[in-house]
C-alpha cells in the first residue's frame, strides 16, 4: 500500500489524498495517515518542482565534482561527506565506487562562483585529496523528465 502511494506521489507530488484514494481504492483517511507517517519517517523527503532554469532566464551553472578523499584517523567518509553536503551549493552528494569517492552536484550562479566553491571551500576540507570539476553544458533529462522536446501522443480520435 505504501509503495503504491509513493509511486503515485513520486510521479506527481500534487496528487491529492482524494485522488490517490480514487486511483487505488484505499480509503482517503488511510491515504492521509500513510502519507503523514511516510513524511515523519523521512521516507518522503520533500515535495518540489523540477525546474527548467534555462527557460526561466535565470543565470545558473551546474557542475559535477568528483572528489577523492583521504580518510584520516578516526574520521570516516561519512563525516567528510557531511562537511561537504552542509554547503547549500551542494545539491546532491553521493559516495560512489570507482576511481574517486564522492560525486557532488553543485549549482552556482556562474563559473566563477563554482570555481570559488572548489578552491575556497572544498579543497580546504581535511581529507579532500583531489577534485575534478566538470561543468554541465546541457541538461537533457532531469530526474526522469525530458527537459526539452517531450514526446507528444498523437492518436486518431476514435478507434473501434
Amino acid at each position: 500500500m505504501l509503495k503504491n502511494i509513493l509511486k503515485i506521489l513520486e510521479n506527481d507530488a500534487r496528487t491529492t489524498p482524494k485522488q490517490i484514494s480514487d486511483m487505488t481504492g484505499i480509503p482517503r483517511a488511510e491515504v492521509v495517515k500513510v502519507i503523514k507517517q511516510a513524511w515523519q519517517d523521512r521516507i518522503i523527503l520533500k515535495y518540489k518542482a523540477i525546474v527548467n532554469w534555462d527557460k526561466a532566464e535565470n543565470e545558473h551553472v551546474f557542475a559535477l565534482i568528483e572528489v577523492k578523499l583521504e580518510p584520516e584517523k578516526d574520521v570516516g567518509f561519512d563525516s567528510i561527506a557531511e562537511r561537504i553536503y552542509r554547503f547549500p551549493q551542494a545539491r546532491s552528494v553521493y559516495l560512489v565506487s570507482g576511481t574517486y569517492d564522492l560525486l557532488v552536484l553543485v549549482l552556482g550562479k556562474n563559473n566563477h562562483e563554482i570555481a570559488n566553491f572548489v578552491s575556497q571551500k572544498l579543497s580546504h576540507i581535511d581529507g579532500v585529496k583531489a577534485t575534478n570539476t566538470q561543468f554541465v553544458l546541457k541538461r537533457y533529462k532531469e530526474d526522469g523528465e525530458v527537459v526539452e522536446g517531450k514526446e507528444e501522443v498523437k492518436r486518431q480520435p476514435v478507434v473501434l
Partner: peptide, 13 residues
C-alpha cells in the same frame, strides 16, 4: 478541445 475516450489504443508511445 475534445477529450476523446473513444480511442482503442494505449496512450503510451
Amino acid at each position: 478541445g475534445v477529450i476523446s475516450l473513444g480511442v482503442g489504443e494505449p496512450d503510451f508511445p
